[in-house]
Nucleic acid binder design. Structure first.
Lengths: 123, 123
DNA sequence: ACTGGACTTGACGTCGGCGTCAAGGCGGAG
DNA sequence: CTCCGCCTTGACGCCGACGTCAAGTCCAGT
């Protein structure tokens, strides 16, 4: 399968796939005419990358998962490095959510006060 | 007061202040030698900008608050446009938090499964 | 032979909020 | 006079994940 077909099947673009390759996340064999040639294993890799970035992982964070799959593991998170990324990401998410909730409560307070001032004798 | 002093008092940098001016958020009078001259009202504006961006507001989102203050209102959120930004921001925060919590639960699930696979007979 | 689509590499653009460097002006202290 | 610290404008750099354009190659269909 060539790059256009892989893009279609993985729901991304050829540009993104070449970008992944430039980062070393993806490696393509080349046909006689110099065009990239992919197989089902590559589709699996891209699927893994996409599902992780879809959750909010940075591309660099997907690297352990990709390498894990390339090492022959059936699942990208079967390796300790991937699990470590999970943990780190969980901590990041916790902290981020915490900050956002704090911001939300501040905004709510501000909004309530602003409305109180604009309608001092609200019905 | 000149730009360095304003930066110190507002806890930011001269670069940031000039940037705010380039966006039209801040307007400086110029002294005889061409240097920017600020007063307490300007400090108030910068303080407003900083406290809002500190919560997570984009600079453009602070514009209504700044203009509200410049219109002579004692509080930056005394104007309808500011309150509208509050509401929009609240909705944004809600959605963002929701997405992050969804991501977190997915990561948690993945992590739990990965650990189950790596230690099938965990004690 | 020609057209059209898919492919190649290379390189610049995008968004936000500044950081940082360049190159110079201005004013007060020693 | 020199030095130092503050100020000025202009312009490029950064981060991430690509989008988009340029200019050319390759192949299948008619």
């Amino acid at each position: 399968m060539r790059i256009g077909e892989l893009a279609r099947q993985s729901g991304t673009t050829t540009r993104a796939l070449r970008y992944y390759e430039s980062l070393g996340l993806l490696r393509a064999r080349r046909g006689a005419n110099g065009q990239r040639e992919y197989d089902e294993a590559d589709l699996r890799l891209v699927t893994e990358i996409r599902s992780l970035t879809g959750i909010g992982f940075a591309l660099e964070d997907t690297r352990p998962f990709v390498e894990c799959l390339r090492d022959g593991h059936p699942s990208g998170d079967a390796c300790p490095a991937s699990v470590a990324v999970y943990r780190r990401k969980l901590a990041e998410l916790d902290e981020c959510i915490e900050r956002l909730e704090a911001a939300r409560s501040r905004v709510r307070t501000q909004l309530a006060e602003a409305e109180k001032r604009s309608r001092p004798c609200a019905r």
